[in-house]
C-alpha cells in the first residue's frame, strides 16, 4: 500500500493524544523547585557547620546524588520522575539517576562489560560535551588572556 507519508504524519500528529503540557509544567516546576530548596537548605546546613563555601557546594551535590542513588536503588525514583518529568531530570538528581540506573540494570551482564562499560550509557554525553565545551571555553579564555 502506498501511504502518503506527509499527509499521514500530519494526520497522526493532529489527532494523537497530546501530553498534558500545563499539568506537566506545574508538576515539573513544583518538584524541581523543591529539590533546589532542599539544596539550599543543605547549603545552609553545611555553612552553619563551618564548612568552607566551596566544599559546602560540592557536599550539596554529593548529598543529592546520594539520596538519588538510594531512591533509585529502592525503586522509588522512577515513580517520582514519572510525575515530575523535567522536575527531577534537570536537577543533579537526573544526572545521578542516569548513572545509577544503568549500573543496576547492566549488572546482569557482569561487573566489567555490563555495569562497568554501560554505566555512562545515558550520562556519558553530558560529561563528554560538558567537558569539551569547557575546554573550548578554556582555549578561548586563554587566548583572550594572552592579548589582554
Amino acid at each position: 500500500m502506498s501511504v502518503n507519508k506527509e499527509k499521514y504524519g500530519k494526520y497522526v500528529e493532529k489527532t494523537a493524544k497530546k501530553s498534558p503540557i500545563l499539568k506537566n509544567c506545574v508538576k515539573a516546576f513544583l518538584i524541581g523547585g523543591l529539590i533546589c530548596v532542599i539544596g539550599q537548605a543543605l547549603m545552609q546546613l553545611y555553612l552553619y557547620l563551618d564548612i568552607s563555601k566551596e566544599t559546602s557546594k560540592a557536599l550539596v551535590s554529593v548529598t543529592l546524588i546520594f539520596i538519588t542513588a538510594l531512591l533509585t536503588g529502592l525503586g522509588i525514583f522512577d515513580d517520582i520522575a514519572k510525575h515530575a518529568g523535567a522536575g527531577t531530570l534537570v536537577p543533579i538528581t537526573g544526572f545521578a539517576n542516569s548513572v545509577v540506573s544503568p549500573a543496576l540494570d547492566n549488572k546482569s551482564e557482569g561487573f566489567v562489560m555490563g555495569l562497568g562499560a554501560k554505566i555512562f550509557i545515558i550520562a556519558g554525553p553530558v560529561i563528554l560535551y560538558g567537558t569539551a565545551a569547557s575546554v573550548l571555553y578554556g582555549v578561548i579564555y586563554y587566548i583572550c588572556k594572552l592579548f589582554m
Binding site: 494523537a16 493524544k17 497530546k18 501530553s19 498534558p20 506537566n24 533509585t72 536503588g73 525503586g75 525514583f77 522512577d78 517520582i80 520522575a81 514519572k82 515530575a84 518529568g85 527531577t88 531530570l89 537526573g94 539517576n97 542516569s98 545509577v100 540506573s101 544503568p102 543496576l104 540494570d105 547492566n106 550509557i121 545515558i122
Partner: peptide
C-alpha cells in the same frame, strides 16, 4: 532494557 531505558531510569511516557 533492550528498546528503551534502564528499568530504574526516571522518564515520562507520552500518552501514545
Amino acid at each position: 532494557r533492550q528498546f528503551r531505558f534502564p528499568l530504574e531510569y526516571g522518564s515520562q511516557r507520552t500518552p501514545t
